[in-house]
Amino acid sequence: MAIKTALRLDYRLSHRGRLAAEMGANLCGCVRSEGAHVEEDRGMNQNPDVDRLMRTLEHPQKEAIEYLRTAILNVDPQITEQVKWNAPSFCYGGVDRVTFQLKSKDVQLIFHRGAKVKDDETPFAFNDDSGLMEWRTNDRAMVTFKDVADVTAHEEAFGSLVSRWMKT
């Protein structure tokens, strides 16, 4: 429950910060109990190219996309992001692992093991205990959410899924 609350707070703060920056406002994200202000910053693993893409993105589920972006980046500080296929894409150890597919009115994320299908000597196996993945090939799957309510209903399972997927 604490993870959910922290994620929601982090999403709201980062979303407010981006909105304030777009309007040229100065935003102070939170106040420490001693009264000292902590100025909000972009997360260390956020990419300014993705920030620019998100500012101009026109998608019916933009709020859900922003929420998921924050969720993915919060899973592990080693996760980085870039723009790939004109959408946010997330890497672990320099390898593309999860990419938004923004052609649908829903929110779709492609879980993959790099730009090309891998020819492994041993068959690839991944246990999706969340039930969120729809397998497209032996090592690529799609996760689809209808809206931000669907995302928040599955956020714990999704966070666990992303954490395990990034490290496979």
Rank of each mutant, 00 (worst) to 15 (best):
Q108M: 07
W135V: 05
D129E: 12
K116I: 11
M133K: 11
R113F: 00
T122S: 13
F111E: 00
T152W: 02
R113K: 03
D119K: 15
G114F: 05
S130H: 04
A153C: 01
I110N: 07
D129F: 02
D120T: 12
V151R: 07
V151Y: 06
E134L: 06
T137G: 10
V151F: 04
G131W: 00
D128N: 06
Q108G: 03
F124L: 14
L132H: 09
D147S: 13
T152F: 00
D147N: 14
T152K: 09
K116S: 12
M133P: 01
D129Y: 06
A149D: 03
E121N: 11
A141M: 08
N138W: 00
N127E: 12
N127H: 12
A125D: 04
T137Y: 01
G114R: 00
N127Y: 04
D119T: 15
Q108R: 15
D150Y: 01
D119E: 13
A153I: 03
D119I: 13
E121W: 03
W135N: 05
Q108F: 00
D128H: 02
N127R: 14
M142Y: 03
M142L: 11
T137H: 07
M142V: 15
F124V: 15
A149R: 10
R113N: 06
H112E: 03
Q108E: 02
A115S: 11
D150G: 09
L109N: 00
A115P: 10
E121P: 02
E134P: 01
D119A: 15
F124P: 15
L109C: 06
Q108V: 07
D139M: 04
V117C: 08
E134H: 10
R113A: 02
D119H: 14
V148P: 05
T122A: 14
P123Q: 08
R140D: 09
F124H: 13
A115G: 09
T137L: 02
D119V: 14
I110Y: 01
H112A: 08
W135Q: 04
S130R: 05
D139G: 07
D139W: 00
F124G: 15
E121G: 15
S130D: 12
V117L: 12
V143S: 09
D119W: 07
E121V: 10
K116D: 14
R136F: 01
W135M: 08
D139R: 00
T144Q: 11
T152R: 10
E121Q: 08
N138R: 15
A141I: 02
A115T: 06
D150V: 10
R140K: 15
E134W: 04
D120E: 12
A141L: 06
V148R: 13
V143K: 09
V117Q: 13
R113D: 02
K118G: 13
V148Y: 06
D120K: 14
E134R: 11
H112F: 00
V151L: 08
Q108A: 11
T122M: 12
A125K: 14
F111I: 03
I110S: 07
R113P: 05
V143L: 06
D120Q: 14
S130E: 07
H112Q: 08
L109I: 03
D119Y: 08
F111D: 01
E134G: 04
A149I: 04
D128Q: 02
